[in-house]
Amino acid sequence: MTSPRVAVVTGAGRGIGAATALRLAAEGTAVGVLDVDAETAEATAERVRAAGGRAHPVVADVGDPDQVKGALADVAGELGPPVILVNNAGVIRDRPMEDLSLDDWDSVVDVNLRGPFLMCQAIRPYQLEQRWGRIVNFSSSSALGNRDQANYSAAKAGIDGLTRTLAIELGPYGVTVNAVAPGYIVTDMTARTAARMGMEFDRFQQMVAAQTPVRRVGQPEDVAHAVAFLVGENAGFVSGHMLYVTGGPMR
């Protein structure tokens, strides 16, 4: 019997990352559940196991190269060589440009852009050894520009360029590299955005849904389904692509 593919999902302790880990595990993929928070990583791993899947929680800061390499080695030792990478981990520090501190800038760029680069670099040897791999980076509709998100928008625009470049570099080795760009998804992060704007979360969701062509807000599972397609065998001729999961066309 062929061993299952092994995936690493970053920021998998909650929200979209947790939904993605569960979705991939449901299709037979063993999942390294990577998060900076040990408690939430273990909680997601336990949910995967309870559903009959294989998971191993790993604690790491994706902006630290030594922790990233150690995390992938840990997953390889527990589950087998990782060949699927989902770079979901992200943070926001939303402020008008004139109020952004260097710490606001650095912390967001470190997690949202430096982190995916380090993860891609670290998983590359495992993928090249297997001559097969899938990478899904997380961009955002904010990459097109969004008020009070100069740091986040810049990092996500960088993800677009990173994705296309790595698709060119890694394609000859059987590795595809794509990105998903979620729109409004109901998560802890978007709840904080509503709070920053002084709106009740439910009211904020209603406002967004009214402006979305499909007339609803997105759920973490909506993004997880898109990721599952991109990492599957049937997406082998899709690479360097930006898939918007936004409930309608983007400008």
Results as ranks from 00 to 15, higher is better:
residue 150 A to P: 14
residue 59 V to G: 06
residue 65 P to K: 11
residue 78 E to M: 08
residue 115 G to F: 04
residue 68 V to P: 12
residue 110 D to E: 11
residue 89 A to C: 09
residue 123 I to M: 01
residue 120 C to L: 12
residue 106 D to G: 13
residue 123 I to Q: 03
residue 158 G to W: 03
residue 109 V to E: 07
residue 104 D to Y: 02
residue 140 S to Y: 02
residue 91 V to Y: 06
residue 130 Q to M: 11
residue 149 Q to E: 14
residue 142 S to K: 07
residue 84 I to Q: 05
residue 163 T to K: 05
residue 164 R to A: 09
residue 141 S to E: 14
residue 99 D to W: 12
residue 80 G to K: 03
residue 89 A to T: 01
residue 147 R to H: 15
residue 90 G to D: 13
residue 124 R to M: 15
residue 66 D to T: 13
residue 57 P to E: 13
residue 70 G to E: 05
residue 60 A to W: 03
residue 101 S to K: 01
residue 82 P to W: 00
residue 141 S to K: 13
residue 68 V to F: 02
residue 152 Y to L: 12
residue 64 D to E: 09
residue 136 V to I: 00
residue 141 S to A: 13
residue 112 N to V: 10
residue 87 N to C: 14
residue 110 D to W: 02
residue 113 L to K: 07
residue 134 R to G: 09
residue 68 V to N: 04
residue 126 Y to H: 07
residue 117 F to N: 09
residue 88 N to C: 12
residue 105 W to M: 09
residue 162 L to C: 02
residue 134 R to E: 10
residue 75 V to D: 01
residue 97 M to K: 15
residue 85 L to P: 01
residue 84 I to M: 03
residue 104 D to R: 00
residue 137 N to V: 01
residue 99 D to Q: 15
residue 129 E to M: 03
residue 114 R to A: 14
residue 149 Q to D: 08
residue 61 D to R: 07
residue 88 N to H: 12
residue 74 D to R: 10
residue 89 A to K: 01
residue 136 V to A: 01
residue 120 C to W: 06
residue 126 Y to I: 11
residue 124 R to I: 12
residue 57 P to K: 04
residue 99 D to A: 14
residue 129 E to D: 08
residue 128 L to W: 06
residue 153 S to I: 02
residue 149 Q to P: 09
residue 126 Y to D: 07
residue 109 V to F: 05
residue 134 R to I: 08
residue 62 V to D: 04
residue 92 I to V: 14
residue 66 D to C: 08
residue 95 R to H: 15
residue 160 D to G: 09
residue 142 S to P: 03
residue 76 A to G: 05
residue 68 V to I: 03
residue 92 I to A: 12
residue 123 I to C: 01
residue 70 G to H: 01
residue 87 N to R: 08
residue 81 P to H: 13
residue 78 E to I: 11
residue 143 A to T: 07
residue 64 D to W: 00
residue 92 I to N: 09
residue 66 D to Q: 13
residue 157 A to K: 07
residue 69 K to D: 12
